[in-house]
Simulated assay, not measured.
Amino acid sequence: MQREDMVLCELLYQLADDNFILAYRGSEWLGMAPHIEEDVAFSSINQDMMGHAVMYYQLLEELGAGDVDTLSHCREPESFRNAILLERKNGLGHYLKNPNYDWAYTVVRHYLFSVLKQIRLESLYHSSYEPLKQAAEKISSEHYYHSMHWETWFTQLISSTKEARHRMENAINYCWQEFDGVISLGRYGKEICDHQLIAEEEKLRNEWLKRVCTTFGEMQFSSKTSPGMESGNGRNGEHTEDLTEALEVLSEVYGGDKQAVSW
């Protein structure tokens, strides 16, 4: 594989793995969302996000990286390029007895990610790799509604009761200390940008901060620190046990009987 294709694959893995893992975390809310309408809406969003992951995996397949099922189900955890924040279990790193307690964390994580995802898609409209540009355009029509969904939840909860705001602020603070890992393009970031595959990391970060902080300001909230990367950089293959456990569940059926899955 030529160097340029290798760098392209690194970006595609990031895009695919982010959607794949966060869609899985979202799917764990099936039957546990705050109300039945949200159960239906969230399930649809997770299905869309899994579809977005498939689109990126298909581009990797076309580049000779492997077939879609193998890329999603048979790779070792260290080969995944998703951000660590997105692999974390629902709830601030742990499952809590009351599922409604960690709904704030789910809303914050999905809202912050949806803003960055929109910015990345806008940047990919100008990507030098035409198939990636086309994929971004297709994904955008669905993501527009995802963004609206999470912004609505975010603004409603943080402006609701005193307890709701407290939980939202705790969730923001937790996500904030890890979110630079979501923005990161990893060790090949400079080459990715040199090939004009996506905008520079600093540009993505600044635009994300601008949009997120505008919403924060409207809700009378502010963060006094820059987003961090306290648990490591998933773009470089650094991950937690949460990812290992998630991948074991995700690949259980496929690993058990590949012939059955093909049917």
Rank of each mutant, 00 (worst) to 15 (best):
M1T: 12
Q2R: 12
R3M: 08
E4D: 13
L8W: 04
E10S: 11
Y13D: 05
D17Y: 03
N19Y: 04
I21W: 07
I21F: 08
L22S: 08
Y24K: 03
Y24P: 00
R25S: 09
A33T: 14
A33C: 14
H35E: 09
E37P: 01
E38S: 09
D39N: 14
D39I: 05
A41C: 04
F42I: 15
I45C: 01
I45L: 03
N46R: 06
M49K: 14
G51F: 04
A53R: 09
M55S: 14
Y57I: 07
E62Q: 15
E62H: 13
G66S: 08
G66E: 11
D67N: 15
V68T: 12
D69A: 14
S72W: 07
S72P: 01
H73Y: 15
H73R: 12
R75D: 03
P77Q: 03
F80V: 08
F80M: 09
R81V: 09
A83G: 07
A83I: 07
I84C: 00
L85R: 06
L86D: 05
K89F: 02
L92A: 04
G93A: 05
Y95P: 13
Y95H: 10
D102V: 13
A104M: 07
Y105L: 02
T106L: 02
T106D: 01
V108C: 01
R109H: 03
H110Q: 15
L112F: 15
L121S: 06
E122T: 01
L124M: 09
H126D: 09
H126G: 00
H126K: 11
H126A: 04
S127A: 07
S128Q: 12
E130K: 12
E130A: 10
L132A: 02
L132Q: 10
Q134A: 09
A136T: 07
E142F: 09
H143N: 13
H146W: 05
M148I: 15
W150G: 04
E151W: 06
F154W: 06
L157Y: 10
S159G: 05
S160V: 13
R165G: 08
R165L: 10
M168T: 00
M168N: 00
E169L: 15
E169V: 15
Y174L: 10
W176N: 05
F179P: 04
V182N: 00
G186T: 02
R187D: 11
Y188I: 00
K190G: 00
K190V: 13
I192S: 00
H195D: 09
Q196I: 02
L197S: 02
L197E: 04
I198F: 06
R205T: 05
N206I: 06
T214M: 11
E218W: 06
Q220G: 01
K224H: 11
S226Q: 11
M229V: 07
G234F: 12
G234V: 11
E238R: 06
E238S: 07
T240G: 02
E241R: 06
T244P: 01
A246H: 10
E248R: 12
E248T: 09
S251R: 12
D257I: 03
K258S: 10
Q259E: 14
Q259P: 00
A260E: 07
V261Q: 03
S262W: 11
W263S: 12
